[in-house]
């Protein structure tokens, strides 16, 4: 009796050409110039980043670009202790939701240069950019965010303001 076959490996490879979409394209072009562009919803007036061309809350297209600060408030976070497949970020690292000043939605990014026991919601942070010559059409032009020496922001209040906007 021969060994049972329990698994075969079938390597499959498919190539895709991704399309960013009109709104994302403008966002990425902005990053190339060191600018973070959001879009203002014509209806609720709130600012979305990164915008995908629509305000999902109002169900309308967004076209009005708004340049945002590279400082913001970290509202929540996790400390990732395991490696991410395909990523060269070494654990443990902090992945966080950051409300950039002028934006009404959180952006997901890394927070570094802070001791892990000092991480707390409401912390003020600022983008740490790569050297300008390394900038591409990518959010990775911002290596990560670093703490800013400013008083903490009340996250509950921040959330309430946007929810009721």
């Amino acid at each position: 009796m021969s060994e049972p076959i329990t698994q075969i490996v079938t390597p499959t490879s498919l190539d895709y050409t991704f399309t960013a979409g009109g709104a994302t394209e403008r966002f990425l072009r902005g990053l190339k110039d060191g600018k973070i562009l959001g879009q203002r919803c014509p209806k609720c007036q709130l600012v979305i980043v990164p915008a995908r061309g629509a305000c999902a809350r109002c169900g309308v297209p967004t076209e009005d670009d708004v340049e945002l600060a590279d400082t913001g408030t970290m509202t929540t976070y996790t400390i990732v202790h395991i490696p991410v497949p395909g990523s060269d970020v070494k654990p443990p690292f902090v992945a966080a939701t950051i409300f950039l000043d002028g934006a009404d939605i959180g952006l997901f990014h890394l927070v570094h240069e802070v001791s892990l026991d000092k991480i707390r919601p409401g912390m003020r942070v600022k983008a740490s950019w790569k050297p300008q010559e390394d900038w591409g059409f990518s959010l990775t032009n911002i290596r990560y965010f670093v703490p800013l020496d400013e008083p903490d922001v009340d996250v509950t209040e921040l959330e309430r303001r946007i929810a009721h906007a």
Binding site: G21, G22, E25, G53
Partner: peptide
């Protein structure tokens, strides 16, 4: 071309 799903559907 340079449109995403949302931009196609909306």
């Amino acid at each position: 071309g340079a449109v995403n799903e949302v931009e196609i559907i909306m």
